[in-house]
Amino acid sequence: MAQGNDRFVFLLRVLTFACGVALIALGIVKFISMSIGGPRDFFLTVYYILFGILVCFSEMPCDRLMSCFFFLKYYIGKALFFLFLGTITFRWTPVYFLVISIVMFCASGFYFVLFFTCSQERVSQPKDNNHEDSKFEKRNVENEA
């Protein structure tokens, strides 16, 4: 059962990486074809590219980026992010927008299922006292005055 779950998670990660590449390609094609109608379309196109890069990096072992976008380490964070991406890419007229948003809605649904059925232990901090203080922990500083 665990091996089947790992295989499913791997396929889901490949699917989400493909969604990220599709978002980047979608943004680049919109810029190249000059099909940007107004400020709203311009900013959505920029968001497609930025969010596509973020999705691709979230599926790679990039700890520096994940420290900034910590919600993408958890299934619920990915589920909500893909639900958001599915809603901003949802359009009827070009069929590839519809396909990308349906794939993102499916990925979001799968991440919701994983969140409710599985425990994710890939993000854990060491329990020993040898780790460095994070920048938000309270530090005890002795005043000399």
Rank of each mutant, 00 (worst) to 15 (best):
T89H: 01
C68P: 00
V55D: 02
S134R: 06
F115E: 15
V21Q: 05
F71M: 11
N130W: 07
L26R: 08
T87H: 05
N140W: 05
S33N: 11
Y111R: 11
F97E: 12
F71V: 06
N129F: 00
L114F: 15
I53Y: 12
L54F: 14
W92D: 15
F116A: 03
C56T: 11
S101C: 12
T89F: 02
R13D: 07
F84M: 11
I24R: 03
V95F: 12
L15G: 11
V9Q: 12
F10I: 09
F8P: 00
L85T: 03
R7H: 07
F97S: 08
L80Y: 12
S58C: 03
G20T: 05
F136G: 02
L11A: 04
C62H: 09
D6A: 14
R64W: 13
E137W: 02
H131W: 03
S119V: 11
Q125W: 14
G52I: 06
C68V: 08
V55A: 15
K138S: 14
S134M: 06
G37M: 05
L114Y: 05
L80P: 05
L15P: 01
F105V: 06
F97Q: 13
F17C: 06
F71L: 01
T117C: 07
T89W: 02
P61G: 13
Y48T: 00
F115L: 10
Q120E: 04
A25G: 14
V46C: 15
K127H: 04
V123Y: 13
F115S: 14
G86F: 07
E137N: 06
L26K: 07
L98D: 10
E121I: 04
F105P: 00
K30N: 15
A22M: 13
L65H: 12
E142G: 04
L114N: 12
R7V: 06
F71N: 04
F116Q: 02
V29S: 09
E144C: 11
V14L: 14
K127Y: 05
V9W: 00
V14F: 10
L11V: 01
I24T: 02
I36Q: 07
V29T: 12
F84A: 12
R13A: 06
S67V: 02
L83T: 01
V14A: 08
F81E: 08
V123L: 01
L98S: 15
Y74C: 02
N143L: 03
T45I: 07
F10S: 10
G86R: 01
V103W: 06
I100S: 11
